[in-house]
């Protein structure tokens, strides 16, 4: 290694330098050079990420706009897509399969639409999270920024997408007799907690997807299982009546079901607290904190390895 260095640099300047004979590490230390591409400390990493907040927001908005920019109806699809989605689920589960099981129409339709939208929020955050690094290798290899900016940005994109869906949801709720009241204010903490949970989950799968891109192929199946187990189209306690009680409890405590139930409780007049499991807010906060902190640390641990191979 040293021959090339010596031959080359000596040829450029013949003057003997006081640095002659120092090893690379000593030379670096003498002039205060640092190792390129080393992982920053956790605190420093959070600071860097905060410094990139404008990029994170701009990137998520850009992705959101770019999504429908080729369509003739343009940004109208932001609202039309969730509306069509809800209509399809209503057609299948409401009209054909009668999954309402004793819920009145005025409750079931907002119940279903809320479920679909809230679950889609988690689902699409996960789907884009798993490709956040592996699908943006060009960006990771060309520019310097804390890599967590990508999964966070994609989750933020999904949050903005959900805000469009909420417009549809409000119209549906009001159309079926649930009018805005103080309970609607609960939507804000529910969304905030779910966003934290989704981001943490996206960070975890982003690291896993960076190492094993095959995960993106597997994800739709995992997500579909999760969707059917979370009671998106039916009430878990009603559907599992007669089965051992612990199954229903387990399903109700899964984070997706918790956030869906809280949102329904906030929005729908006929969906009271009796439908919620015990300590539901503690669970909602606990899942959010666990995943947000755990996911962030887990992602940071591999920071210097993203972009390899």
């Amino acid at each position: 290694m040293s021959e090339t260095t010596h031959d080359g640099t000596v040829a450029v300047t013949a003057a003997p330098s006081p640095d002659e004979g120092l090893t690379a590490a000593e030379l670096a230390a003498k002039y205060g050079l640092s190792v390129s591409g080393a992982r920053p400390s956790l605190v420093e990493y959070v600071r860097q990420l905060w410094g990139r907040r404008h990029f994170i927001l701009a990137f998520s908005q850009a992705k959101l706009t770019a999504q429908y920019s080729q369509a003739k109806l343009g940004q109208l699809w932001q609202v039309a897509t969730p509306l069509l989605n809800a209509a399809v689920y209503f057609f299948i589960f409401g009209l054909i399969l009668h999954a309402s099981r004793g819920m009145s129409r005025d409750v079931y339709i907002p119940f279903l639409v809320t479920g679909v939208f809230v679950f889609t929020f988690t689902q699409s955050s996960l789907m884009s999270g798993v490709r956040a690094i592996s699908g943006n290798l060009g960006l990771v290899r060309a520019l310097h920024f804390p890599r967590a900016a990508l999964p966070v940005s994609f989750s933020l994109q999904q949050l903005q997408q959900l805000l469009f869906s909420m417009i549809v949801l409000f119209v549906v709720a009001i159309g079926f007799g649930s009018y805005p009241g103080p309970a609607w204010l609960l939507i804000v903490p529910v969304l905030a907690l779910q966003f934290l949970f989704n981001t943490g989950l996206a960070l975890i799968v982003a690291r896993m997807g960076a190492k094993t891109p095959d995960l993106a192929q597997l994800m739709p199946f995992i997500l579909r299982t999760w969707m059917y187990a979370s009671g998106v189209m039916f009430s878990i306690p009603v559907m599992l009546r007669g089965k051992p009680h612990w199954i229903a409890t387990l399903l109700q405590w899964n984070p997706a079901a918790i956030y869906m139930d809280l949102m329904r409780f906030a929005l729908i007049d006929g969906y009271g607290a009796e439908n919620l499991p015990d300590h539901v807010w503690a669970a909602a906060g606990g899942w959010a904190a666990l995943f947000a902190v755990g996911g962030f640390v887990y992602f940071w641990k591999a920071e210097e390895r993203y972009g390899r191979g």
Binding site: V35, S36, A142, R308
Partner: peptide, 18 residues
């Protein structure tokens, strides 16, 4: 170039930068 920029992790050896 990418390794100098710290964008590609080194297998062995190191890059020090100012």
């Amino acid at each position: 170039l990418r390794a100098i920029a710290g964008l590609l992790p080194a297998e062995r050896g190191k890059v020090y930068t100012d």
